[in-house]
């Protein structure tokens, strides 16, 4: 692919040359498939993202929102890429299928393993939960006592929210650290699905 780029076209103008190189859309999406970097590099970068965000917000809630915002942009891209690679060129319309997709495909792409559980809340019918017993992101992070309610996985919540939005299942997504014995970082991603989606689900159920 790159050999075609270098042959023939020689021009002084940098911009003209840039225009002549194939755009990202023309490149093979599998080019870097399976590529890896050190988890430490990610941990350093992520800690800087948190620090930077923290300096620009007032409270924990704002901080989580800001992290979610950064995660949201990641989520849009993760969704597109995984969807293209799965070769499923159709949009999921049912909430449960979207959730299963996030639980397995997306989690595997991001963290190399599926999430530990996907549950439906028994109390509220619009709430679903994805649980990760040892979130990769929290691995090197210790949250200070005075910020106990902060969950670094708000970033992941942002990713999930973007994917749900992309699938036309808008939801409010939040992350909560819920430690259990031996799993201090256990995190629950709580998804509160929008009313309009639930109404649509009901329609789809009855029309079957």
């Amino acid at each position: 692919m790159s050999s075609g780029r270098n042959s023939g076209l020689t021009t002084d103008s940098k911009l003209a040359r840039k225009a002549a190189t194939p755009s990202s859309l023309e490149k093979n999406i599998n080019r870097k498939r399976g590529g890896e970097v050190s988890l430490n590099s990610f941990a350093f970068l992520f800690s800087e993202i948190i620090l930077y965000s923290q300096n620009r917000v007032l409270g924990i809630q704002d901080l989580e929102q800001k992290l979610g915002e950064i995660g949201y942009r990641v989520g849009i891209r993760v969704y597109e890429l995984t969807m293209l690679r799965e070769r499923v060129i159709k949009r999921e319309t049912r909430v449960i299928n979207v959730l299963l997709y996030i639980n397995s495909v997306v989690w595997k792409f991001l963290f190399g393993k599926p999430a530990d559980s996907l549950e439906k809340s028994t109390e509220n019918k619009d709430e679903y939960m994805i649980t990760d017993n040892e979130p990769l992101l929290s691995k090197f992070i210790s949250v200070p006592k005075e910020m106990a309610s902060f969950s670094p996985c708000s970033f992941v919540a942002g990713i999930v929210e973007a994917i749900l939005d992309s699938c036309q299942c808008p939801a409010r997504v939040t992350a909560h650290t819920v430690p259990v014995d031996g799993k201090p970082h256990r995190t629950v991603i709580l998804m509160k699905i929008d009313k309009s989606v639930l109404a649509r689900e009901e329609r789809l159920d009855t029309s079957k």
Binding site: G35, E36, V37, L45, V74
Partner: peptide
């Protein structure tokens, strides 16, 4: 060192995260 002493994470995820930071 890369082969034996490094835990890894998906490259694309890492790159997207950096990109999102730059956008921010």
């Amino acid at each position: 060192v890369w082969k034996t002493r490094i835990e890894r994470i998906n490259l694309e995820f890492f790159v997207f995260t950096y990109g999102s930071l730059v956008v921010q």
